[in-house]
Amino acid sequence: MPSIFNRFGVAGALLIVYIVWGTTYYALGVAMQTLPPVLMNGVRFLAAGLAMLAIARWQGLAWPTAAQWRASALIGGLMAFAAMALVVLAQQAGIGSGLMATVVTTMPMWLALWTRWGGERVPVTSWIGLVLGATGALLLALEGDFSTTVLGTLCAFGAPLAWSVGSYASRKLPLPAPAMASAAQWLLGGLLGTVAALLFEPGARSFQFAQVSAVSALAWVYLVVLGTMVTLNAYLWLLQNTSAALAGSYSFVNPVVALAVGVWLGGERLNGWVFVALPLIGAALALILYGGPLLAWLRRQRPARAATSG
Rank of each mutant, 00 (worst) to 15 (best):
Y250P: 02
F209K: 06
L223Q: 09
G227Q: 09
S206H: 14
N233Y: 00
R205S: 14
Y250V: 13
R205I: 06
L246N: 02
A210E: 14
F209I: 14
Y250Q: 14
T231F: 04
V224S: 06
A244L: 05
V230E: 06
V221T: 13
L246F: 03
V212C: 03
V253R: 01
S213Y: 05
S251H: 13
F207G: 09
L218Q: 13
V225T: 11
V253I: 15
Q211Y: 05
A219L: 04
V221A: 15
V215Q: 14
V230W: 07
A219E: 04
S249P: 04
A217W: 14
W220M: 11
A234S: 13
G227W: 08
L236Y: 12
A214D: 11
S216N: 03
A214K: 00
V230F: 10
S213D: 14
L223W: 01
F207D: 08
S206C: 08
S249V: 02
S213C: 04
A217T: 11
L232W: 13
T228D: 09
V257A: 08
Y235T: 06
A210K: 04
L246P: 01
S216L: 01
A247Q: 03
L232G: 01
F252R: 01
V212S: 05
L226Q: 07
A219G: 08
N233F: 00
A245L: 05
A258W: 05
Y250C: 05
S213P: 02
A258F: 05
Y250H: 15
S243D: 04
L226Y: 06
S216P: 00
T242C: 10
V225I: 15
V225E: 05
L238E: 02
G248H: 01
V230D: 02
L226H: 04
V253T: 06
L238Q: 04
V212D: 03
S213N: 11
A258Q: 07
L226R: 08
N241H: 15
V256M: 11
S206P: 02
L246T: 03
W237G: 05
L232C: 11
V224Y: 06
L238K: 07
A247E: 02
Y235D: 02
A245R: 04
T231Q: 10
F209L: 15
S206K: 12
V221F: 12
S249R: 00
